[in-house]
């Protein structure tokens, strides 16, 4: 039984249909890849699932409850967490304080609990400069803080929007290992990625979006040979 089920969701921006009658589901312990050319609607799907944006049509069920109309903070507390494609750290805080925010409000920790929860996450993600301010962090550290804040809510469903983008090869491998370790904790993970190496390495199953619709789905190996998928990506390069 899926932990998250989106059925026939639709989202328009003015005249543009960014997500068009889309249905998909996520399972515990599974990593789902969401791929597709620029502007396909991947980030919008995450926004809709996390409640950052509302759907125009369709329903979203999480653990058999309809959360279609729930506000973002409610969904986060219930167990849906996300990162942002362009990291959105809280600039007035240090690395560990950013992560504490997730523990305090997403998980509902008390202040002293939140600090130790956040420290555990820093250890897990190998964040060393926990007391540095956001503006002193490297790209990799920022990505980890972004991931850490999402994880601190103790989510059951986690959406990762291009967390590998802009990292070196070594850094990418470090994050791949981290995401795999999260999968073992039975979190349902959805990764949006442009780097095919990462998709191949991480995902159990992939859905390919183009113009807000699924044009193919299945294991990465199969999907990557699909003619329509190749055409969609080629179309992007023209």
């Amino acid at each position: 039984m899926p932990i998250l089920q989106a059925s026939n969701i639709l989202r328009k921006f003015g005249g543009l249909v960014a997500v068009n009658d889309l249905s998909f589901s996520m399972e515990k312990g599974e990593i789902l890849g969401i791929i597709g050319p620029n502007g396909a609607g991947k980030t919008t799907v995450i926004n809709l699932m996390a409640g950052t944006l509302g759907v125009n049509k369709g329903t979203i069920e999480f653990k058999d409850k309809d959360v279609t109309k729930s506000a973002a903070h409610i969904r986060n507390r219930q167990g849906i967490a996300r990162t942002f494609q362009i990291v959105r750290p809280l600039e007035n805080f240090t690395a560990i304080e950013n992560i504490m925010v997730g523990a305090l409000f997403g998980k509902g920790d008390k202040l002293n609990e939140a600090r130790s929860s956040a420290q555990n996450i820093c250890n897990l993600l190998n964040i060393k400069n926990v007391n540095k301010h956001v503006d002193e962090l490297t790209v990799l550290e920022l990505k980890k803080v972004e991931l850490g804040r999402a994880l601190a809510a103790d989510p059951e469903v986690l959406f990762l929007d291009e967390i590998m983008a802009g990292l070196t090869s070594d850094e990418t491998w470090e994050l791949i290992d981290i995401v795999k370790s999260l999968q073992k904790k039975d979190i349902a993970i959805s990764v949006v990625e442009h780097i095919m190496k990462v998709v191949k390495e991480l995902t159990d199953r992939v859905i390919v979006l183009n113009k807000g619709q699924i044009i193919a789905q299945g294991p990465y190996e199969k999907v990557s040979e699909n003619k329509e998928v190749i055409a969609a990506y080629l179309g992007e390069e023209e």
């Binding site: 996390a50 986060n76 809280l90 007035n92």
Partner: peptide, 14 residues
């Protein structure tokens, strides 16, 4: 104050 979108998606009832 920093970022309402981040705050909301971190469980804060703004």
């Amino acid at each position: 104050r920093n970022d309402e979108t981040t705050a909301k998606s971190s469980g804060i009832d703004v």
